[in-house]
Structure formats: structure tokens, C-alpha cells
């Protein structure tokens, strides 16, 4: 258990050693997606003169944008790229000698700053939310879902990074995953803007549980029962992700070790 705490502390120190850059990154990753969203709403409603789109008016859209920001900050983290790089360069061998799971170690190290951000976002969301009459229970629940989403995202990345055992350029898979996530998680647009016949696109991936789900619940667009149902789904995805990692890593490791590392 001890090494997990150590990894957490190490990851945290690593991320915040250069405070200015850390702040830069957080602000950059918050400001730009929000600005892009706002631009779209601005173009649609203010320049285009629309009143209601997919049942949402301008202020609904802006609300969605602001609240989704809280969860956009939690999702992702690019530590799966680190895994891929370790496999590719053979650094993985260093970790195999230690009595810890590489996949877990890299995750804990990488998610440390996200935990801090999650804490800040939670406090911010609850205090500002209170002012606008948003239920703190909902925000806490939404944050829980976003954190599960963070694990899910890494699980998928960790499984995909095993392609590095086979190919030099496995990061392409991770890039593709991130691109799909950027649209299908709902951080760019609310997913209910998808026309009816295209809704299946985001429903078949777990990505909507990262940002869209939490935002909808926090804003009160999802009922408690529907939220719990979705939370159950995210646990199913977690289990599937865990099995996926087990499978791909045992395959990859077998290959790695038989090739002499």
C-alpha cells in the first residue's frame, strides 16, 4: 500500500514542481475548450439569431459550457502515452523488477495532479453552484462519475498502449482515442445536439460518462434514478476495462519477455 502513496506524492511533486507551467496548463486546458464552445453558441445564437436549438437556449448552452469545464479538467490525463513510450523504448524492463504493477504505478503517478484539480473543481462547483441553486449532492455525484471516467479513460489507454509491443508508433491509437473522446465526451458540444439518427454514435462508447453525464446530472437534466443507472453502467465499463487490460497486457508481456525485453 505504501508505494501507492509514494507514487501519488511523487506524481504530485513532479506536476507541481514548476508551478507556473502547471497553472498555465490548467488554465489553457480550461480556457480554450470553453472559448471554442462559447464561439459556437455565439455564432449560432447571436450572429445566427437562433432562439432554441435541440431544446436549449443561449443561456442553457452557456451554462452547459461552464459546468462542463469542471469535468473536462478531470477527464483524461496523458499517462497512457507514458506507458506506450516505456514499452517502446524498453524502459519497461526497469519496472518489471519491482514488485508493483506498472500499469497501476503509472496511473497513480499521473493522476495525482488531477486529484488536486478535482478537489478544487469540487469546491468551486459546490460554492458557485450553491449560489445558482445547484444541489451539492448532485455536484458530488457528478464528480464521482467524472473520476470513474478518469479511470476508464486510462484503462482504455493502457490497453491500447499494448499495441506498442507490436508496433513502433502505437501513440497513433492513443491519439485517435483522444480525438474521439474530445467530441464524444461532450466537452465540445452537448451530446443531445446530435440528430436523432446519430445519437447511437456517442451511446455506444463510455466517453459520454466523462463530461456529458456529469454535466447533465449536475445541471439537473438527469433524474437521480437515471444517474444511478448510468453510474451502474460506468461500473460495468470499469469491469470490462479491467478485463481488457488483463488480457492485452498478458498478451503483450508474453511477447515482450519472449523477445528478451
Amino acid at each position: 500500500m505504501n508505494w501507492r502513496l509514494a507514487a501519488l506524492r511523487n506524481g504530485f511533486q513532479d506536476a507541481t514542481a514548476y508551478r507556473l507551467e502547471f497553472l498555465f496548463e490548467v488554465l489553457g486546458s480550461a480556457f480554450v475548450p470553453a472559448a471554442i464552445q462559447w464561439v459556437l453558441w455565439y455564432a449560432m445564437f447571436k450572429i445566427g439569431g437562433a432562439h432554441e436549438i435541440a431544446g436549449m437556449n443561449y443561456s442553457d448552452m452557456v451554462q452547459y459550457t461552464l459546468v462542463s469545464l469542471l469535468f473536462t479538467q478531470i477527464r483524461g490525463g496523458d499517462h497512457d502515452f507514458e506507458l506506450q513510450e516505456m514499452i517502446r523504448t524498453g524502459q519497461l524492463s526497469n519496472y518489471l523488477l519491482r514488485p508493483v504493477s506498472v500499469v497501476e504505478f503509472v496511473y497513480i503517478r499521473g493522476m495525482a495532479p488531477k486529484l488536486l484539480i478535482a478537489g478544487v473543481c469540487l469546491t468551486l462547483g459546490m460554492s458557485v453552484g450553491l449560489f445558482f441553486g445547484m444541489s451539492p449532492v448532485r455536484i458530488m455525484g457528478a464528480m464521482l462519475m467524472a473520476l470513474i471516467g478518469n479511470v476508464l479513460h486510462y484503462q482504455i489507454g493502457a490497453a491500447l498502449s499494448t499495441t506498442a509491443f507490436l508496433w513502433e508508433e502505437a501513440y497513433s491509437f492513443l491519439m485517435v482515442k483522444n480525438m474521439l473522446v474530445s467530441l464524444l465526451s461532450g466537452e465540445l458540444i452537448p451530446l443531445n445536439l446530435f440528430p436523432k439518427n446519430m445519437q447511437w454514435m456517442w451511446k455506444i462508447t463510455p466517453f459520454y460518462l466523462y463530461v456529458f453525464g456529469p454535466t447533465q446530472y449536475a445541471l439537473g437534466h438527469w433524474t437521480h434514478t437515471y444517474f444511478l443507472e448510468q453510474l451502474a453502467w460506468s461500473c460495468v465499463w470499469l469491469a470490462a476495462g479491467w478485463a481488457f487490460i488483463k488480457f492485452t497486457w498478458s498478451l503483450g508481456m508474453g511477447r515482450y519477455l519472449s523477445h528478451g525485453g
Binding site: G48, I53, A54, L193, M198
Partner: peptide
């Protein structure tokens, strides 16, 4: 997706 909701942007 966006143009499914508005004709001109």
C-alpha cells in the same frame, strides 16, 4: 451535428 440544427453559421 451543428448544421443539423442550424442552416447557416
Amino acid at each position: 451535428v451543428i448544421y443539423a440544427n442550424v442552416p447557416v453559421l
